[in-house]
């Protein structure tokens, strides 16, 4: 057989190191374009705020992350991150638990399904941001509202995905478990649940993007700290030197969580990789 091409076509087999290199190319390209554009703008107007130079950016990062605020003694980036992550995790963990339980029961109990399935489908179509004002009115503008928004935003997706995962398991497994002596609760929590866990982690991974969206939105509207709050606060001063590092940081956090969850799945559920 001929040697497969390195890059182009259906038969391409890029080598291991080449793959790493190729993956870096778009990142490098964007960085180069940004630096060039910043340079051009600064050549015209040295006080340009729109595209801060790399030097300005690194000074800003230093100030945000590594120097304490003189008045409060806090490091702004870290305290914002802590506040945001607390909300994000509370919301998504609650949503994962509720979604898992609802999806499991919907998928296994026809009676439960008959009552709640249509309602869940209907509920999941509500745009969560549209009911944010209701949340602020009902639960107030503190933490609870933000966590509830994240919960409402991602819980239907997790519930429906879990439901589909349960449905995709052959009915034979349920019968089989019962012939081995399983009670109805055993079937749900000891036979089916363990098989759904890797799928749950995957649907949490997919919901993370949406969870961030709702978090930032809630913080933008009513908060006193948090990553989203900061971005929308400094927007008034066109402070791109703060906004850009914050956006990069949020992206990086999201990427890391996704990676961590994937590793968790690979470690815990070896059988799922087949």
């Amino acid at each position: 057989m001929r040697k497969p091409p390195l890059l182009l076509g259906l038969h391409a087999r890029p080598g291991k190191y080449l793959k790493w290199l190729l993956a870096a190319v778009p990142f490098i390209l964007v960085a180069v374009i940004y630096v060039t554009a910043a340079h051009i703008r600064h050549a015209e107007n040295p006080r340009d705020k729109l595209l801060p130079t790399p030097t300005a950016l690194s000074q800003s990062v230093h100030k945000l992350a590594f120097s304490a605020n003189k008045r409060t003694g806090e490091y702004m980036l870290w305290s914002d991150t802590a506040a945001s992550l607390k909300r994000l995790f509370s919301g998504i963990i609650l949503a994962a638990i509720a979604g898992l339980l609802l999806g499991l029961n919907l998928g296994l109990f026809p009676g439960f399904n008959a009552v709640f399935y249509s309602f869940l489908t209907f509920f999941s179509m509500i745009p969560p941001l549209a009911i944010l004002p209701i949340l602020f009115i009902v639960v107030g503008i503190d933490e609870a509202a933000k966590i509830t928004l994240i919960f409402i935003g991602v819980f239907p997706l997790i519930a429906r995905d879990t439901y589909l995962a349960v449905k995709s398991l052959p009915q034979e497994q349920v019968t089989k478990a019962i012939t081995l002596g399983a009670s109805q609760l055993d079937v749900v929590y000891r036979v089916i649940l363990p098989q759904i866990m890797p799928r749950l982690i995957n649907s949490v991974r997919l919901s993370l993007g949406a969870a961030w969206l709702f978090l930032i939105a809630a913080e933008a509207i009513a908060a006193a700290d948090g990553l989203g709050y900061r971005i929308f606060l400094v927007r008034r001063y066109l402070a791109m030197d703060i906004i850009l590092p914050y956006v990069l940081w949020i992206t990086l956090l999201g990427f890391c969580f996704d990676w961590l969850l994937r590793q968790l799945n690979n470690r815990l559920f070896r059988w799922y990789q087949a």
Binding site: E172, Q173, Q195, W271, A274
Partner: peptide, 13 residues
Amino acid sequence: RGIVYQRYSLFPN
């Protein structure tokens, strides 16, 4: 009653 199916008898996890 015990059952052995053609497939799906074992739990993959």
